[in-house]
Amino acid sequence: MTTRDIVFVAVGAVTALSALLSVTTKHVVHAALWLLVSLGSLAGAYLVLGQELVGLVQLLVYVGAIVVLVLFALMLTRAPIGPHAEIDTPRWQRVAGAVLGGATTALLASLLLPLFAGATADLDRPSTTTPQIAQAIFGTWVWPFELLSVLLLVALVGAFAVSRIVLQRDGADRHDADHPDHPDHHDSHDDGDRTAATTAVTSEPGTGRVG
């Protein structure tokens, strides 16, 4: 047990504990917040492992962007504040989930622990430094890197198109503006839904609501 081992155990315990809380808590928003803690401490774990760049990107992208997106999504879907029993699946399904989760952990552990048994990394003389990573990305991995940029663009366009196409089909399907299931009526009390409603208004000029 080296010092780094002890530090990693501490950080890893926080990570695991907050991850457990984020999948078990009854508060919808708390789940996202515990995820925040978990991912942040995972960034710490990366630091302990000597990968500063990965840790920082983890902080920037996951903690700074993705979790915020999740929080926005929760708000847009009118997530209830406070404990809520209805966020979990029926008990039998949760039991099945626990069994499957345990099985996954056991499987992976039984595979990985023998693989890494006794393996150590000398982090005082790191094998990969940040300049090396930079050179690898723009050297060896440059084509996958460019491909990823295309993927990001496609995901952006795709996300926009999904909401837009479905909205247009909504408009084509439902000619009656006062249909009870119309999104505008649903969201008319909700502050968080402004953006969605605005999208609906722009795509459905005939059904726009006076805000």
Binding site: T89, Q93, L100, A103, T104, L107, L111
Partner: peptide
């Protein structure tokens, strides 16, 4: 969807167990 996810993961885990 929830049941579909369950079935999917059961299948994945089974395949993984078999593979391991």
């Amino acid at each position: 969807p929830s049941l579909s996810l369950l079935s999917l993961l059961v299948g994945v885990v089974l395949v993984a167990v078999l593979g391991v």
